[in-house]
Structure formats: structure tokens, C-alpha cells
Simulated scan of single mutants.
Amino acid sequence: MPTPVFRNSHSAPAPKSGRRPRLHCVVEPSRQLSVVQLLITATVVAALLLMPLPWLLRLLLACLAILLSLRERAQLTKSRGLLLARDGSLFWREQGAAEEQEIHLSGEQVLWPWLVILKGRVCETGERFSLVLGRDSVSGDDWHYLHGMLRW
């Protein structure tokens, strides 16, 4: 899937100061994705413990799977804030942060009916940016608008 571009052939007037941005999503961590991750982790740990390997190796691999799952869980739970799009740019403001960060999407983006994964870089610092959104992370209208915007 090519990297989406937010500028399209429809010339929309630039929003005036004080007007609502074209996209204004309040993002919350997805409970559905958390449940799916928990089920996958439980399945992997059970499969590792049932493998015909020495018990110490099985235990170490199960601990590694749990640690990796906890790291991913932390990534899911920190996705709380505002996702904004205006003037052809995408912005992210974490909950509690004073300023928005402009995000430049790069690489492959995941755009499924129940999952969106945005990958890119923060324009000012060059840090990597990743945001995982489940269908229950944003309101229904925002979900449809976000899908439409990313398809362009």
C-alpha cells in the first residue's frame, strides 16, 4: 500500500484560526486490541509450555513472550490524545502535552476495517512515531473520516 498523501485534488480553503480542524479525533486505548493481545499471548505461552523442549528453555521462552507482550501493551496504552489533520498535515498531541507534534507518515500504513496503524516521524525531532488504533479507539464518525482521509 503506498504512503497516503493528505493533499488531494479538491482545493479546500485553509481553516481560519479558531476553526475546527478537518480531523479532530479524541483517541483512547483500544479495549478490543488489548483483549486480542492478551489472547494471543496466552496462546503463545501455552504452546511454548507444551513444546517438547527442556523445561528450563520452555520457561525462558514463555517469560520472553510475556515480556514482549508487556512492552507492546505499554505501546497500546500510551495511545491517548488528539489526532488532528489540517492544511494537508497530520498532528498528534498526547494527553497532558502542551503542544502538537506534526507527523510525517512514511513507510507502509495498515488500513483495515478494524485496525489502523500509522507509522512515521515527528517533523521537528525526527523521532519515530507509531500509533495503533482499534475501531473502538475513536468515535464512529471519526473512524470513517480517518479511513477516507488515509485512502487519499
Results as ranks from 00 to 15, higher is better:
G107T: 12
L70T: 10
S79M: 06
L33M: 06
L68S: 04
K78L: 01
K78I: 00
R151Q: 12
G134S: 04
P52F: 07
A47F: 04
T41L: 02
Q109M: 03
V45E: 13
E108T: 09
H104W: 03
V132Y: 06
L111Q: 06
A74H: 06
R121H: 13
S139T: 13
P2F: 01
F6G: 02
Q32H: 08
G88Y: 03
C123R: 15
M51V: 04
G140R: 09
V122K: 06
P113I: 03
H104E: 13
H24I: 03
V132T: 15
L39F: 02
A47C: 11
V26Y: 05
C25G: 04
P54H: 05
P52T: 10
G120L: 11
F6Y: 00
L49W: 05
W114S: 15
E99L: 09
M51I: 09
L67Q: 13
V132R: 15
S30G: 13
V116A: 02
R73H: 09
A14T: 14
S17P: 15
S139E: 12
S34R: 10
W55F: 12
V27G: 12
H147R: 06
S9E: 10
L67F: 15
V138L: 01
L131P: 02
L23W: 00
V122F: 06
R31T: 11
Q32D: 09
H10N: 08
R128E: 10
W55T: 13
D142P: 08
E28Y: 13
V122M: 05
Q95A: 15
E102S: 10
V27F: 08
S11T: 10
F91A: 12
H24L: 08
L59V: 14
A85S: 12
M51F: 09
L39E: 07
E94C: 14
F129S: 03
R93N: 02
V35Q: 11
L53E: 11
H104Q: 15
A74E: 10
I117A: 11
Q109D: 00
L133H: 07
H24F: 05
F6L: 11
L82N: 05
G96E: 03
Y145H: 14
L115W: 01
S89L: 10
G134T: 08
G148E: 08
L105E: 01
R135A: 15
A12T: 14
A14E: 13
R151L: 13
L59A: 13
L133E: 03
G148R: 09
P113L: 00
L53T: 07
L56F: 03
E124Y: 07
S89I: 08
F6A: 02
V36W: 02
L48V: 04
W92Q: 01
L38N: 12
A74I: 08
Q95C: 12
H144F: 12
M51P: 00
W114C: 14
E99T: 04
P29Q: 01
L68E: 08
L64M: 08
A14Y: 13
L39G: 05
A42H: 07
W114A: 14
I103M: 12
P21R: 09
L84F: 00
L133V: 05
W112S: 13
S106K: 01
L111I: 12
H104M: 07
L49A: 11
R128H: 10
G18Y: 00
E124C: 08
L84C: 14
L82P: 05
M1T: 12
P21Y: 02
R73M: 11
V110W: 07
R86C: 09
R135L: 14
T43C: 09
R80V: 10
C63M: 12
A14V: 14
G126N: 10
S9K: 07
V5C: 15
